[in-house]
């Protein structure tokens, strides 16, 4: 692990643990922070496909649903009650892994189709997941899955949000991960440069869906109740808004987008239904005034790893950096 990152990570984790353990923050504020964290995981992972790979996935809520249901089945039905709280981390990882496997399968159509048509495949995928869940009586069908314990706390959310940011960043800024961007820029040139485009797509989908599954697991054990309708198109749209609001191809953008969206939604709560009228208007205005989102294609410098040392001993830093 790079030195510059280690200390801040640990201290943030420690602070969030203290907050959880001693209730240092109002529980409503904690709840909002947890939503922010989960949304950061979702938007960062979606950005991998929609921003860095340049595809347009509309089925991310389907991945989240798979993670949520997998983890709920594990903690409620599989694990012995007494051990369930301790095994929760395993349930989260397992949820991520199961989702990642499904994500890898969904990468297969992306080998052949691109653009609008791939978008529709992901859309269809999301719809199928929801419809299948609605038809599974053993999982509560449309009524939903009840009796999930609240194992998610701020510490876990912060841990996973940082893990998502860190790993996606590590991937994106590696030579291997630059392959994802090369597919976005010019797939033909990428393959001529020796990039195994299938491998790149497979890996991006797998990593992205892993974290969507993790977010689903955290979400399920925060709400203590899940139903298929929570993971419908509206949810996917919400994630798209966070990503494009923050700016595509930017991890910092996804973080900012998730924060602004989540907090604004809470602040505007007193407006009732009019809140949901106002939000889209703001989105449209933002797109017109800043079509690339708040930080489109640029990145906070602290998020960019110094990738290595050149033969001359000079540090090489990635170029797409702005600000501090």
């Amino acid at each position: 692990m790079s030195k510059g990152f280690f200390l801040p990570l640990v201290s943030v984790l420690l602070v969030s643990h203290l907050i959880t353990a001693y209730g240092l923050l109002d529980s409503y504020v904690q709840l909002v922070l947890m939503y922010v964290g989960i949304n950061i995981i979702l938007s960062v992972s979606l950005n991998l496909i929609n921003g860095y790979m340049g595809e347009f996935s509309v089925g991310h809520a389907g991945f989240m649903a798979i993670g949520a249901y997998t983890s709920a089945i594990l903690t409620v039905r599989m694990f012995p009650d007494a051990l369930a709280p301790w095994l929760f981390p395993i349930a989260v990882v397992a949820a991520g892994v199961v989702t990642a496997i499904v994500g890898a399968l969904l990468a297969i159509p992306s080998f052949k189709t691109r653009g609008d048509y791939l978008a529709i495949v992901t859309l269809a995928f999301g719809m199928i997941v929801k419809s299948v869940l609605e038809n599974m009586d053993s999982l509560g069908a449309a009524r939903g899955f009840l009796g999930i314990s609240k194992y998610t706390n701020l510490t876990w959310v912060v841990f996973w949000a940082m893990a998502a940011v860190w790993m996606v960043r590590n991937f994106i800024y590696s030579s291997f991960g630059r392959g994802v961007l090369s597919v976005r820029e010019d797939e033909i040139a990428a393959s001529a440069a020796g990039v195994n485009t299938r491998q790149v797509k497979l890996f991006a989908f797998t990593l992205s869906s892993f974290f969507a599954g993790v977010a689903g697991a955290l979400y399920a054990h925060l709400l203590m109740f899940i139903n298929p309708k929570m993971f419908d198109l509206t949810k996917s749209t919400e994630m798209l808004i966070m990503v494009y609001l923050g700016g595509i191809g930017s991890i910092g953008g996804s973080i900012v987008g998730a924060m602004i969206y989540t907090v604004l939604l809470e602040l505007l709560r007193p407006l009732g239904i009019w809140r949901m009228v106002l939000m889209p208007i703001m989105l449209v205005l933002l797109m017109i005034l800043r079509p690339r989102g708040i930080m489109g294609l640029s990145e906070f410098r602290w998020l960019i790893p110094s990738v290595g040392v050149s033969s001359k001993g000079a540090k090489i830093v990635q170029d797409d950096a702005v600000g501090d």
Binding site: R178, S182, A190, L297, I316
Partner: peptide, 16 residues
Amino acid sequence: FKTLSVLDNVRIARYG
């Protein structure tokens, strides 16, 4: 790869 840096353009070719 137009929006990527000059270094990245060469780096990607060492993919794998």
